[in-house]
Design a protein around this nucleic acid. Structure first.
Lengths: 193, 193, 193, 193
DNA sequence: CATGAATGAGCCTTCATTCAT
DNA sequence: AATGAATGAAGGCTCATTCAT
């Protein structure tokens, strides 16, 4: 019920807009709806009809990625090595964050424009929490981390890689940082000094 | 000698401007020179005379913090336990980053408006690198981290704590994340899978 | 086809803007887009949409005049007395320059904002050059003048008339100066001293 | 009485300011008193004390040139060939106009900031008028030009040379244009059509 | 539904001039 | 006299959003 099926032409416009937005995100240009409209060869009004705000559009662009990430998490739940499951999931997450600016922005944002986004983020959060919980029960992970820490930490890693500079080796850098963090995650915390 | 001593009234305005800017930074408002002028009860021109760009003002706000951080690093160099020295330094760094938005922004920026800032950042970088090198030689740190990784990682931790939300417990969160990371930093990397 | 036909309301605004600009030019006020907007009772953005720069607006204001001048030159090409043809053309040119500040400004400008202006100026230049060449071949004009000298000389005459002062008799003054210049143009240059 | 003798240091500042202004004029930079002050290593106030407006400074810069031009005119009055006298004077005038932007600006300006400038311009005007009158009486010049036309025409020639473009050959172009004009000046006007 | 013209608040920056020191 | 900090009007331009066509 939430989404009425669009007329064929409207659907085509929707696609066009999202495609243009994706391209802009990928080239690092900030999303401006006027700009999107011009590049899509559509009126501004049309873009506004489909996406009331730039955030809504950005979230739409990020959605497929969020979905596949969630799916990946669910698959990982099937793995019978909880430590490995967590590692795989986080690795995929980081890769996605680094490669897709829309994902990083949406993930880090405190609020959401679209219900669908909120839903997906909740799902992702909880899969992560579940993976973490299992790993912890298996003794593969230190006890002082909660499910709420996963996403922030992933955002942090991605951000660190970006601060490091070097567009080129960003993915490699992120991988290295994740490796360090994961070793920390697996370690026993020292009894507090 | 680089900066001629300001006249008394000019100095008072300079202070006012920096104070207003500090307040704005602390409340999370983006720095706009016009805005600063209005709040300081000064003409726009006055603000522009003292700070040609918003970046210059921001860096000026961040300077004392950068200085004390550098000082802290130098003190740490005197510690005869290289591992502990590094830990202390990074802990202080994270605290500062979390408490001071200007520091986070300046540290993460790729370029600098003021020569003084460039100088301080270079100093900070190199103290960090030195501390890391010593710790590595002492076997207290994994070998696959270089001096260039320190600042990005600190920025990442601070960012993670911010994404986590909860203004209140931000400092506490950052401390926890740093602890995890440090355990990772101290660990031996697994032979690559 | 180069310019899509404007919507009726947009066309009305376009006219309004150009009319206001024409009035400002005529009263000697420098064109400022903000000012134009206010006087036209329109938002700044509207003016900027139609004319990205003050130069573009000025050139638009000057265009009809440039066009009619070019047309006049082409007609003169039909005259079978090449000397008279040149005289008529230059007389008309000076009259236009003196009466229309936009024309003087656009003609003297080294570059152009609109392609259309560049095109028109090229056309005007070349008609002038052609008229001059014919007159020279007919022995009605001294040999040491080229087509590139015509426009500068006309600008110079108009400028001289303006320096002379006396808003009122400016046209008359310009006519006199042109007469003098033309007599010089018709004369044989003395063998160089 | 008009000018009190300046104290030695004040005189030195005056010189400095004028020298800087001359340099700015020569490089085509518009005169801004703040700018002049900075380049002269003086306070703005000092510059304002000596020259209340940019026009006053500009006129001061132009003064020596105006003086020498007037002197040249007076010498020409001694020549016993009135036609040649006029030619020599106008040639020198044009050369000066083309080489010195301050002269062109001051000459073309409708009003004057300094009494001294007004005086010099009047003198120059009248020498020119006298030279023209003599030449006319000698039959070396057409009758329909008055003393008031000389300066405007010279400004026009200089302007024309500038519109022509080509910084390099500007002086040469001006000379050519002057030659044409002078031939016109020497000619008999046609009985009006 | 689509269009895209219009809007105007809002930010940035410069510069002529004054006046306290 | 000299200084130069302060002023703030003035102008430039952008962009998110609305609404008539």
């Amino acid at each position: 019920m939430s989404t009425a099926p669009l007329r064929k032409d409207a659907a085509r416009n929707w696609e066009r807009i999202v495609a243009v937005a994706r391209a802009l995100v990928d080239e690092g240009t900030p999303l401006q709806l006027n700009d999107v409209a011009r590049r899509a060869g559509l009126g501004v009004g049309t873009v506004y009809r489909h996406f009331p705000t730039a955030e809504a559009l950005l979230e739409t662009v990020a959605t497929p990625c969020l979905e596949s990430l969630t799916a990946c998490g669910r698959q990982a739940l099937a793995d019978d090595d909880p430590g490995r499951a967590l590692t795989v999931f986080l690795t995929r997450t980081i890769e996605a964050q680094v490669l897709d600016a829309s994902l990083a922005a949406v993930t880090a944002a405190p609020g959401d424009a679209l219900p669908r986004t909120a839903e997906l983020k909740r799902a992702l959060w909880s899969v992560g929490a579940e993976l973490l919980a299992r790993a912890r029960e298996a003794g593969a992970v230190r006890p002082d981390l909660t499910g709420d820490d996963l996403v922030p930490l992933m955002c942090g890693i991605a951000y660190a890689a970006q601060v490091h500079g070097g567009e080129r080796e960003r993915a490699e850098t992120a991988r290295r940082y994740l490796a360090v963090l994961l070793d920390g995650v697996r370690s026993r915390p020292e009894p507090d000094a």
